[in-house]
Design a protein around this nucleic acid. Sequence first.
DNA 1: ATTGAGATTATT
DNA 2: ATAATCTCAATC
Length: 215
Amino acid sequence: MGTESSIGKELNLGLNNRLKRDFFLRDAFLVATQLLGKILIYRKNKALLAGKIVETEAYLGIKDKASHSYRGKKTERTKILYEEGGLLYPYTIYGIYTCCNIVSNIAGIPESVFIRALEPIEGIEIMKKNSPKVKTIKALTNGPCRWTRSFGIKKSLYGCKVYGSNLYIQDPPERQKRIDIVKTKRIGIDYAGSDADRNLRFYIKNNPYVSKRRR
DNA sequence: ATTGAGATTATT
DNA sequence: ATAATCTCAATC
C-alpha cells in the first residue's frame, strides 16, 4: 500500500479498543468534545478507511433552534434522532451532498453530534477514488460533506451503530491524547437566531484538517 | 400538487 | 459571489 500516514502505522485499528454504546448515551456537548482526537474507522468490503475526528458540532435537541429536532420536530428524515445514542444520522443536503451526525443521549432526547472534519489516517487511495476531482489530501476530509464522500458514507447507513464491526470509533494512541480544544459558533446556521451565537462548534487547535471559510 | 430552502462545495 | 442540484417537509 504505502499510503498510510505515520499515525496509522502505530495504531491498532482493530475492534478491540472500540468506544462502547455507553459513550454515546450522554449529552451531545460532552460527546462532541470527547470525540475530538478519536479515530473513526469504516470498513467496507476489504477496504479500511480511518481518520481522526478534528472538528465537531453539538446539536442540542428540542430547545436548539439549529437542530433538526427543534421543538420536537419528528419526520421520516429525523426520526432516528429520537432513538438512543450511537446511531448514524446521514442526510442529503443541497441535493448533492451527504453529511452525517452521530445520535447522542438516551432514547427520547433527540440530540446529535455533527462530524465536520477528519484527518485522514488510512485508506487515502480509496478516498481519492471516492473523490476523484479532489487535488489535495486536505480537501479529501476537511468538510462535513467532503469526508463523507471520501469515505463513501451513504444514506443506506441510516441508523447504523457506530460501535459495530464495520463502523466504529476508538481512542488515539496515548501520545496523542492531549489536545487543545477551540470552541466557536456553529457554521451555516444563521437561521437559528440566538442559538446561532452559542459556542457549540469544537475543533482541535492548529489542526490543518479543520474546515475552512464561512462565519 | 406546489414550493422554498438547506448543518455545502466548487467554480467564477 | 453564486450556481449546482434535488430531497424533504411545510403549505396550499
